[in-house]
Amino acid sequence: MSAHTIFDNAPIGSIVAWSDGTPQPPARFNKKLAAWQTSNSRGRLIRKQRARGVGNLSLSACFTLHEADHGAGGVIAIRIHRTFSLDSSLTFTIVERPAIGLVRVFDRAGDDAELVYLATHETDAREWLTRHGYPRAVLHEVTADEVGADIVEGRTAA
């Protein structure tokens, strides 16, 4: 799939994989493998941003994937996010869509909102919010209309 397809069809909270089409090098080649993983990995779709202008600068539409968290003892020290513009030459695949009934916790309302947590139900989401300070957080439940649209329209779910 193209980046446009992901932007148009993948619901926020989906697991999306990306690839440049090159074969994975053997594990013994640490540097080659690390470089390959930059262009071949997966992450959770946390944000979609439409094209926008900032002064004289025009920014194209893009989406952001949360690839990984690094830390120790329950403390996240580094969070890895990857942002892709819609003109990316990589190939994307929707690996998993969020299940119906899950609750997405966004850091704020509006088009610039970013997914910060995917809860199993509303009580879980509200309990998570008491421990993580997001005073403008917004909750949205994953609906059958959103996830099931591909089946109704005759497309494959993945």
Rank of each mutant, 00 (worst) to 15 (best):
F92H: 02
D69F: 01
H140M: 06
V116E: 09
P135A: 12
R136M: 08
T120E: 14
L129F: 06
T123V: 14
H132Y: 09
A125Y: 04
A68W: 01
D112Q: 11
F92G: 05
R47A: 06
L86S: 03
D107L: 04
P23L: 00
V142Y: 06
V147P: 03
A68E: 10
A149F: 15
L129R: 00
V142N: 03
A158L: 08
R28G: 01
R126G: 02
L115K: 04
V75W: 13
G110T: 07
A34L: 12
I151T: 12
L115T: 06
R28S: 15
L45M: 00
R155L: 10
S41I: 04
G148N: 05
R50A: 13
T123Y: 12
E127Q: 15
K31D: 14
A51C: 10
I76G: 04
I46D: 05
A34E: 14
I94H: 13
G43K: 04
Q24P: 06
V75D: 09
A34K: 15
L33Q: 10
A17H: 04
H81S: 06
V138M: 15
T120F: 03
D87G: 15
L33C: 06
R131H: 14
S89R: 08
G43L: 01
N40R: 07
A34N: 13
W36I: 02
D124G: 14
F92L: 04
R82A: 07
T38R: 15
I12F: 02
E127F: 11
S14M: 05
K48N: 01
H132E: 09
E114P: 07
L115C: 03
L59C: 14
R42D: 11
Y117S: 10
S19N: 02
W36P: 14
I80N: 10
L33R: 15
A51Q: 15
T156Q: 11
A109T: 10
A77Y: 05
I78W: 00
V147G: 02
P98V: 14
L65P: 07
I100W: 06
A144N: 08
H70Q: 05
K48V: 03
T156E: 11
G43R: 03
S39C: 03
W18C: 05
D107E: 14
V95C: 10
N30Y: 00
D124I: 00
R97I: 01
L59K: 14
I80C: 11
V138W: 01
R52N: 07
T130C: 13
A72T: 11
Q37I: 02
D87E: 10
W36Y: 15
E122T: 13
H132A: 09
R50N: 09
S89Y: 00
G133E: 08
D111S: 12
F84S: 04
I151Y: 02
H132F: 08
A17P: 00
